[in-house]
Protein backbone atom coordinates (compact mmCIF):
# COMPACT_ATOMS: atom_id res chain seq x y z
CA UNK A 1 0.00 0.00 0.00
CA UNK A 2 1.21 3.45 -0.88
CA UNK A 3 0.51 5.45 2.26
CA UNK A 4 1.87 8.68 0.78
CA UNK A 5 -0.62 8.40 -2.06
CA UNK A 6 -3.49 7.81 0.36
CA UNK A 7 -2.52 10.78 2.53
CA UNK A 8 -2.00 13.11 -0.43
CA UNK A 9 -5.32 12.05 -1.92
CA UNK A 10 -7.09 12.59 1.38
CA UNK A 11 -5.61 16.07 1.66
CA UNK A 12 -6.69 16.88 -1.90
CA UNK A 13 -10.25 15.73 -1.16
CA UNK A 14 -10.55 17.96 1.93
CA UNK A 15 -10.91 20.85 -0.51
CA UNK A 16 -14.32 19.39 -1.34
CA UNK A 17 -15.34 19.22 2.33
CA UNK A 18 -15.86 22.96 2.48
CA UNK A 19 -18.52 22.85 -0.25
CA UNK A 20 -20.23 19.83 1.31
CA UNK A 21 -20.27 21.33 4.80
CA UNK A 22 -21.37 24.84 3.78
CA UNK A 23 -24.22 23.39 1.76
CA UNK A 24 -25.19 20.96 4.54
CA UNK A 25 -25.24 23.45 7.40
CA UNK A 26 -26.70 26.40 5.51
CA UNK A 27 -29.46 24.16 4.18
CA UNK A 28 -30.30 22.93 7.68
CA UNK A 29 -30.23 26.44 9.08
CA UNK A 30 -32.70 27.66 6.45
CA UNK A 31 -34.89 24.65 5.78
CA UNK A 32 -35.78 23.74 9.37
CA UNK A 33 -37.42 27.09 10.25
CA UNK A 34 -38.92 27.39 6.76
CA UNK A 35 -40.34 23.88 7.11
CA UNK A 36 -41.93 24.82 10.42
CA UNK A 37 -43.57 27.89 8.87
CA UNK A 38 -44.92 25.81 6.00
CA UNK A 39 -46.23 23.18 8.43
CA UNK A 40 -48.00 25.91 10.43
CA UNK A 41 -49.48 27.32 7.22
CA UNK A 42 -50.63 23.86 6.22
CA UNK A 43 -52.57 23.36 9.47
CA UNK A 44 -53.78 26.96 9.78
CA UNK A 45 -57.44 27.88 9.62
CA UNK A 46 -56.92 29.90 6.45
CA UNK A 47 -57.90 27.93 3.36
CA UNK A 48 -55.57 30.07 1.27
CA UNK A 49 -52.54 29.30 3.44
CA UNK A 50 -53.42 25.61 3.49
CA UNK A 51 -53.65 25.61 -0.28
CA UNK A 52 -50.42 27.54 -0.81
CA UNK A 53 -48.53 25.27 1.60
CA UNK A 54 -50.05 22.13 0.07
CA UNK A 55 -49.11 23.20 -3.43
CA UNK A 56 -45.59 24.12 -2.34
CA UNK A 57 -45.07 20.71 -0.76
CA UNK A 58 -46.50 18.93 -3.78
CA UNK A 59 -44.24 20.81 -6.22
CA UNK A 60 -41.04 20.49 -4.21
CA UNK A 61 -41.52 16.86 -3.26
CA UNK A 62 -42.91 15.96 -6.65
CA UNK A 63 -39.92 16.89 -8.78
CA UNK A 64 -36.29 15.72 -8.61
CA UNK A 65 -34.03 17.78 -6.39
CA UNK A 66 -31.46 17.93 -9.18
CA UNK A 67 -34.11 19.37 -11.50
CA UNK A 68 -34.79 22.07 -8.91
CA UNK A 69 -31.08 22.83 -8.66
CA UNK A 70 -30.92 23.11 -12.47
CA UNK A 71 -34.01 25.27 -12.56
CA UNK A 72 -32.65 27.76 -10.08
CA UNK A 73 -29.15 27.85 -11.55
CA UNK A 74 -29.91 27.68 -15.27
CA UNK A 75 -33.59 28.59 -15.43
CA UNK A 76 -34.01 31.63 -13.20
CA UNK A 77 -31.47 33.78 -15.11
CA UNK A 78 -34.05 33.81 -17.91
CA UNK A 79 -36.25 35.78 -15.49
CA UNK A 80 -33.40 38.06 -14.59
CA UNK A 81 -32.49 36.29 -11.36
CA UNK A 82 -28.91 35.06 -11.26
CA UNK A 83 -27.18 33.20 -8.48
CA UNK A 84 -23.64 31.93 -8.23
CA UNK A 85 -23.59 28.15 -8.18
CA UNK A 86 -23.22 27.81 -4.40
CA UNK A 87 -26.11 30.18 -3.67
CA UNK A 88 -28.24 28.41 -6.27
CA UNK A 89 -27.51 25.07 -4.60
CA UNK A 90 -28.32 26.45 -1.13
CA UNK A 91 -31.60 27.97 -2.33
CA UNK A 92 -32.70 24.79 -4.11
CA UNK A 93 -31.71 22.50 -1.26
CA UNK A 94 -33.32 24.70 1.40
CA UNK A 95 -36.59 25.01 -0.50
CA UNK A 96 -36.65 21.28 -1.21
CA UNK A 97 -35.80 20.08 2.30
CA UNK A 98 -38.23 22.58 3.82
CA UNK A 99 -41.03 20.70 2.05
CA UNK A 100 -40.00 17.39 3.62
CA UNK A 101 -39.46 18.94 7.05
CA UNK A 102 -42.86 20.64 6.77
CA UNK A 103 -44.59 17.28 6.39
CA UNK A 104 -42.61 15.80 9.28
CA UNK A 105 -43.47 18.76 11.51
CA UNK A 106 -47.11 18.65 10.47
CA UNK A 107 -47.43 15.00 11.38
CA UNK A 108 -45.66 15.71 14.67
CA UNK A 109 -47.97 18.61 15.52
CA UNK A 110 -51.04 16.61 14.60
CA UNK A 111 -49.94 13.72 16.79
CA UNK A 112 -50.25 15.90 19.91
CA UNK A 113 -53.37 15.13 21.91
CA UNK A 114 -56.32 17.53 21.54
CA UNK A 115 -56.46 17.78 25.31
CA UNK A 116 -53.23 19.79 25.24
CA UNK A 117 -54.90 22.49 23.15
CA UNK A 118 -57.98 22.41 25.33
CA UNK A 119 -56.14 22.79 28.62
CA UNK A 120 -53.99 25.59 27.17
CA UNK A 121 -57.15 27.21 25.83
CA UNK A 122 -59.06 27.15 29.13
CA UNK A 123 -55.98 28.54 30.90
CA UNK A 124 -56.20 31.52 28.56
CA UNK A 125 -53.21 30.92 26.29
CA UNK A 126 -53.61 32.29 22.76
CA UNK A 127 -53.11 30.06 19.72
CA UNK A 128 -49.61 31.46 19.18
CA UNK A 129 -48.66 30.95 22.83
CA UNK A 130 -50.09 27.43 22.75
CA UNK A 131 -48.08 26.53 19.65
CA UNK A 132 -44.88 28.10 20.88
CA UNK A 133 -44.92 26.93 24.48
CA UNK A 134 -46.98 23.74 24.51
CA UNK A 135 -47.30 22.08 21.11
CA UNK A 136 -44.05 22.74 19.24
CA UNK A 137 -41.75 21.75 22.14
CA UNK A 138 -43.57 18.41 22.37
CA UNK A 139 -43.56 18.04 18.60
CA UNK A 140 -39.78 18.53 18.56
CA UNK A 141 -39.26 15.42 20.65
CA UNK A 142 -41.53 13.30 18.49
CA UNK A 143 -40.02 14.32 15.15
CA UNK A 144 -36.38 13.75 16.09
CA UNK A 145 -36.14 10.27 14.49
CA UNK A 146 -37.65 11.27 11.11
CA UNK A 147 -35.71 14.56 11.09
CA UNK A 148 -32.51 12.63 11.75
CA UNK A 149 -33.40 10.45 8.78
CA UNK A 150 -33.79 13.48 6.51
CA UNK A 151 -30.55 15.06 7.71
CA UNK A 152 -28.63 11.90 6.89
CA UNK A 153 -30.22 11.81 3.45
CA UNK A 154 -29.21 15.45 3.03
CA UNK A 155 -25.54 14.66 3.75
CA UNK A 156 -25.54 12.34 0.77
CA UNK A 157 -27.78 14.49 -1.43
CA UNK A 158 -25.21 17.29 -1.27
CA UNK A 159 -23.26 15.27 -3.83
CA UNK A 160 -25.88 16.29 -6.42
CA UNK A 161 -24.26 19.72 -6.79
CA UNK A 162 -21.72 18.28 -9.19
CA UNK A 163 -24.52 18.98 -11.69
CA UNK A 164 -23.84 22.70 -11.59
CA UNK A 165 -20.07 22.36 -11.46
CA UNK A 166 -19.46 22.72 -7.74
CA UNK A 167 -16.39 20.92 -6.46
CA UNK A 168 -17.85 19.09 -3.49
CA UNK A 169 -16.31 16.03 -1.84
CA UNK A 170 -17.55 13.44 -4.33
CA UNK A 171 -16.77 15.53 -7.41
CA UNK A 172 -13.25 16.23 -6.10
CA UNK A 173 -12.75 12.51 -5.55
CA UNK A 174 -14.06 11.72 -9.01
CA UNK A 175 -11.58 14.10 -10.62
CA UNK A 176 -8.72 12.38 -8.79
CA UNK A 177 -9.96 8.92 -9.76
CA UNK A 178 -10.18 9.90 -13.43
CA UNK A 179 -6.74 11.50 -13.32
CA UNK A 180 -4.93 8.66 -11.50
CA UNK A 181 -6.92 5.59 -12.67
CA UNK A 182 -7.09 4.65 -8.98
CA UNK A 183 -10.27 4.32 -6.88
CA UNK A 184 -8.62 5.22 -3.53
CA UNK A 185 -10.24 8.67 -3.70
CA UNK A 186 -13.71 7.09 -3.86
CA UNK A 187 -12.96 4.99 -0.79
CA UNK A 188 -11.80 8.08 1.09
CA UNK A 189 -14.91 10.00 0.00
CA UNK A 190 -17.07 7.08 1.16
CA UNK A 191 -15.38 7.10 4.54
CA UNK A 192 -15.92 10.87 4.75
CA UNK A 193 -19.69 10.44 4.27
CA UNK A 194 -19.79 7.57 6.73
CA UNK A 195 -17.97 9.56 9.43
CA UNK A 196 -20.32 12.49 8.96
CA UNK A 197 -23.45 10.40 9.11
CA UNK A 198 -22.04 8.68 12.19
CA UNK A 199 -21.42 12.02 13.91
CA UNK A 200 -24.92 13.20 13.03
CA UNK A 201 -26.43 9.94 14.25
CA UNK A 202 -24.62 10.38 17.56
CA UNK A 203 -25.78 13.99 17.83
CA UNK A 204 -29.38 12.93 17.26
CA UNK A 205 -29.03 10.13 19.79
CA UNK A 206 -27.84 12.70 22.30
CA UNK A 207 -30.79 14.93 21.50
CA UNK A 208 -33.20 12.03 21.96
CA UNK A 209 -31.55 11.32 25.27
CA UNK A 210 -31.86 14.95 26.26
CA UNK A 211 -35.60 14.74 25.63
CA UNK A 212 -36.00 11.48 27.52
CA UNK A 213 -36.53 13.35 30.80
CA UNK A 214 -40.24 13.00 30.11
CA UNK A 215 -42.60 10.71 28.27
CA UNK A 216 -46.28 11.10 27.62
Amino acid sequence: MDYDYIINTAIAITKGFKVTYSLLFTTLLLSLPLGLLIALARISKSRLLQYVAGTYIWLLRGTPLLLQVFFIYFGLPAFGITFDSMTAAIVAFSLNYAAYFAEIFRSGIQSIDRGQYESADVLGLTYTQTMKRIIIPQMAKRVLPPVSNEVITLVKDTALVFGIGLLDTLRTAQIIVTRDFNITAFVIAGIFYLINTLILTLIFNRLEQKYSYYYD
Binding site: G115, Q116, E118, S119, V122, L123, G124, Q138, Y214
Partner: peptide
Protein backbone atom coordinates in the same frame (compact mmCIF):
# COMPACT_ATOMS: atom_id res chain seq x y z
CA UNK B 1 -63.36 29.94 35.07
CA UNK B 2 -61.01 27.10 35.81
CA UNK B 3 -61.46 23.65 34.32
CA UNK B 4 -60.27 20.22 35.31
CA UNK B 5 -60.46 17.44 32.74
CA UNK B 6 -61.05 13.75 33.02
CA UNK B 7 -57.65 13.03 31.45
CA UNK B 8 -55.76 15.72 33.41
CA UNK B 9 -54.17 17.20 30.27
CA UNK B 10 -51.06 18.28 32.11
CA UNK B 11 -48.20 19.52 29.93
CA UNK B 12 -45.91 16.47 29.87
CA UNK B 13 -42.77 18.42 28.94
CA UNK B 14 -43.08 20.75 31.90
CA UNK B 15 -42.44 20.04 35.56
CA UNK B 16 -45.24 20.21 38.10
CA UNK B 17 -44.18 23.73 39.07
CA UNK B 18 -43.88 24.85 35.44
CA UNK B 19 -47.33 23.45 34.71
CA UNK B 20 -48.79 25.59 37.48
CA UNK B 21 -46.97 28.84 36.68
CA UNK B 22 -47.35 28.56 32.90
CA UNK B 23 -50.63 30.47 32.62
CA UNK B 24 -49.88 33.05 35.34
CA UNK B 25 -46.61 33.90 33.56
CA UNK B 26 -47.78 33.70 29.95
CA UNK B 27 -51.33 34.97 30.26
Amino acid sequence: MGMVFQNFNLFPHKSVLENIIEAPLTV
